[in-house]
Design a protein around this nucleic acid. Structure first.
Lengths: 209, 209
DNA sequence: CTTTAATCGTACGAGTGAGTACGAATACAC
DNA sequence: GTGTATTCGTACTCACTCGTACGATTAAAG
C-alpha cells in the first residue's frame, strides 16, 4: 500500500485534507450500513477512518453534520448521473427507460436506503435529503418532459404532474418495501419494470389523433 | 369525569384490563407522534397512561413489544376499512376510487407515518408491519381485481401486477415525501388524485375491442 | 376476615454515547 | 532551528434509558 493504514499523529501533510474527509465519509457510510443511524457512533466512524473523534467534531460539528455531508455527497452523484441520462440523443423511449432503470437501481441501493431511513427519523436530515435530492432531480426530468411535449411527442397538462405519473409507474411501492427490509429488485426485474412503466407512460400521454 | 384520571394503587377492578391496555396503546401513540420511536420512552408512556413502568413491562415485555401491538391494532383497523370498501355494490370506478381515497388518507395519517418510520429503523417491526399490513391488504384488492377481470370489465395479466400498477398510480411518491416530513395531501388533492389514478388504471386495463 | 393477586411509586444498576479537555506528537512556514 | 497549526489518544463529564427490585397499597377470592 502506498497509504498508511494507520494515521500517525501530528500535523498532517498539506493537501490531504479533502482526501481524508472523503475517507471519513466512506467510513461513515459503511458504519451506517452496518448499524443504522441510531446505532451509528462517532467513535466507530473515527476508528474506521483512522481519525480521532475530536477531528470529526472539528470538521463536521456533530454526528448529524457527518450524515448531512453524506447525504449531499450522495445527492450530488445521483443528480449528475440523472442529468447525464437526459443528455443523450436517443429516442424518448430509450432515454426514459434509461432514467427509469437508473432510478430503480439508485433507490434500491443500500446507501440510498440507509440515508433515507436516517432522514426519516431526523427532520433536519429529511429537509436536506429533499432539497438536495428530490427537489433538484425533479426539475431535470420535468424539463425533459416539457421538451418532449413541445416537440409534440407527448401530450401532458403539466410537467410536474407528468413527472409524478412517471415516478409512480416506475417505482410503485418498491421504495417503501425496500425501506421496510425487503430485497431490492434484481437487474432483470428492474429492466422489465422500467420497460413496462415507460410503455404505460407513453400510452397515457399519447397525442390524440 | 367517571374515570379516575390518576390511577390509584393496588389491585385493579376486575375486567378493566382490556380497557387499560387500550389506554396504554393510545398513550404510546401520542408519545410516538410527539417524539418518534427513538425518543419514545417507557416512562413517558406509563405516565401518560396513568400506569407504572413495571406494569408495561409485565404486559408488553419491552418497548418494541408495545409498538408491535400498536402496529397490529392499526393494521387490523386498516384492513377492516379496506375490506369494507370492496363490499359495496357500486360500479368498479366508484369502488376503486373509494379505495384509492382511503389509501391516500390512511398512508398520510400521522399514526401511519409514525409507525412506518418506527418500522423502518427496526427490522422486527418492519416484518410485522409488512405481514400484518401490506401482505394482508394486497390479497383483498387483488381478489377484487381478479373478479373484475373475470367479469370481462378489465384486461390484466396478473392481479398482483395490476395491484401494484394501481398502487403506483394512486400513491406516486406521496408516502415517501410524507415520511420525509412534507405535509400530507389535502382532502381535495386526495380526491383529484384518486379520480385521476382510477381513470388511468381503467384506461391501461381497458379491454381491447 | 384473611389471603392472594395486581398494581403503583420509587429507587437502583448497568450500559451507552455525545461532546469536551488536554498533553503529546508531527509537519509545515519562516 | 524555532514556532505554529493540526491531529492523535485518552480520559473525562454529563445525561439518559432500559430493565429490575421491592415495599406499600388496594381489590378480589375464599
Amino acid at each position: 500500500m502506498a497509504e498508511d493504514a494507520t494515521r500517525r499523529r501530528g500535523r498532517p501533510r498539506a493537501g490531504e485534507r479533502a482526501e481524508r474527509e472523503a475517507r471519513v465519509l466512506d467510513a461513515a457510510t459503511e458504519e451506517l450500513l452496518a448499524s443504522g443511524y441510531e446505532g451509528l457512533t462517532m467513535l466507530a466512524i473515527a476508528k474506521r477512518a483512522g481519525a480521532s473523534k475530536e477531528t470529526l467534531y472539528s470538521w463536521f460539528g456533530s454526528k448529524e453534520g457527518v450524515v448531512e455531508r453524506l447525504i449531499q455527497r450522495n445527492a450530488d452523484a445521483s443528480a449528475a448521473r440523472i442529468q447525464a441520462a437526459f443528455e443523450t440523443d436517443e429516442d424518448p423511449r430509450q432515454t426514459l427507460t434509461g432514467y427509469a432503470t437508473g432510478l430503480l437501481a439508485l433507490l434500491g441501493s443500500p446507501e440510498s436506503v440507509a440515508l433515507n431511513r436516517a432522514a426519516m427519523t431526523t427532520p433536519a436530515l429529511a429537509e436536506i435529503l429533499l432539497t438536495s435530492g428530490r427537489h433538484r432531480v425533479g426539475p431535470i426530468v420535468e424539463a425533459y418532459l416539457e421538451r418532449l411535449h413541445q416537440q409534440g411527442l407527448i401530450q401532458i397538462d403539466s410537467s410536474g404532474e407528468a413527472f409524478e405519473l412517471l415516478y409512480g409507474l416506475v417505482m410503485q411501492d418498491t421504495q417503501i418495501r425496500v425501506l421496510l427490509g425487503e430485497r431490492p429488485p434484481s437487474k432483470t426485474t428492474i429492466a422489465k419494470r422500467a420497460a413496462t412503466a415507460v410503455d404505460r407512460f407513453l400510452q397515457l400521454t399519447a397525442v390524440s389523433p
